[in-house]
Amino acid sequence: MIWQQIANGIATGAVYALTTLGLTMVYGVLRVLHVAHAGVYALGAYVGLWAFRFTGNFWIGLVVAMAACALAGVLIERFLYAPLLHLPRIIPLIASIGLFIAMEEAFRIVAGPYALAYDAEVRFGSLALGPLRLTGPQTLILTVTLVLLGLLWLLLSRSRVGLAMRATAMDAEITSSFGVNTRAIIALNFLIGSAMAGAAGALIGVYDNQVWPTMGSVPAYKCLAIVVLGGLGNIPGSVLASFLIGLAETLLIGIVAIPFPRDALAFVAMILRHDPSSDVPSIRSAGKGVGTPMEIHRFRRFFRKDSAP
């Protein structure tokens, strides 16, 4: 049964990975905590469901959801964050929270307060890897996640655009002095990150067969914790942290039966990792990025004072 629990954990981790990616990419280029990302995730579920009902095909629904969320992400960057970036970082954060609440209420008004069924029958066989058995829905989640992560990795490591994206995340000013249009790169980060969130929303909608207005509220804060754990702005780090948290949560409740809610785990891990004097091994070294100790300190300061970091 431990193998079944591991399969459960991997599937949960895959969902976390897809959702947190956008958050970490946005933080990487803007240093903004993009809370409304969870609203984009819910939007993906609604659009995916709508497109699925319209066409009867899950895959078309998935692609439409990704496209719609990509557009939403670019619009959010252009009209919400861009005008606020010269202000202390707490201002775009508040704007982001405001947008998130507005999105939740908009979903409720448009689609109603009830959870909607997303009954896309995706025939995906169960997968056996040695003793590890993934159920059909779990195989679907894991396959789509791995394909999307693979494509992103190819883009980032094998293309000039990817190089520009990585450079912008390290230092936008210097990168723009090399002639890179960092504004476009930032928009691209939003586009890709939001498309991933859209895919996550649509996948979760099918996995749980539920789409409801406040489905983003738990991911909104949990993904934040995972992103911090993975090293803010660090893409491989946040993917690794997602799988670790997904597995650890599942194994802890499935085998040890921890006495606290599983959602607490991501925060416990975040706090432990956050403490510079802690000897908990850091997973920051999993990838090179901006999750440097300096960055973490800036983040901490940011929460202590309401001033610019």
């Binding site: 459960n8 949960t12 749980d208 539920q210 738990v218 949560e249 599942t250 194994l251």
Partner: peptide, 8 residues
């Protein structure tokens, strides 16, 4: 908040 009951 709980949506994943598979471990239980």
């Amino acid at each position: 908040g709980e949506k994943d009951f598979r471990p239980f």
